[in-house]
């Protein structure tokens, strides 16, 4: 196995693990809603009925999809 192929694989592996770690940190941050540290999340945003908790749910879904999009772009960029 050549050094360049090993380096390429290791680089890709680091990218995979980095994205997974970021995703898991964000994913498990949702638990904050059930702890004292996240009590502020149950407050309403301005005069609307939407709370920080609900906004967090929607944002997490959108962030996860954005992370996947970024991962795809970086993977393609790495290939080219």
């Amino acid at each position: 196995m050549t050094d360049s192929s090993v380096a390429a694989v290791h680089k890709k592996t680091r990218l995979r693990l980095l994205f997974t770690a970021v995703h898991l940190v964000l994913y498990f941050s949702f638990t904050l809603n059930w702890t004292g540290w996240g009590s502020g999340l149950s407050s309403r945003l301005g005069s609307s009925e939407i709370t920080g908790s609900l906004l967090m749910f929607v944002l997490l879904v959108l962030i996860f999809i954005s992370l996947e999009t970024l991962f795809m772009v970086l993977s393609r960029w790495g290939r080219s």
Partner: peptide, 14 residues
């Protein structure tokens, strides 16, 4: 909902 959705990025990354 989040639990079920959270698996898909991991499937893709890993």
């Amino acid at each position: 909902s989040l639990g079920a959705f959270g698996a898909w990025p991991v499937l893709m990354f890993l």
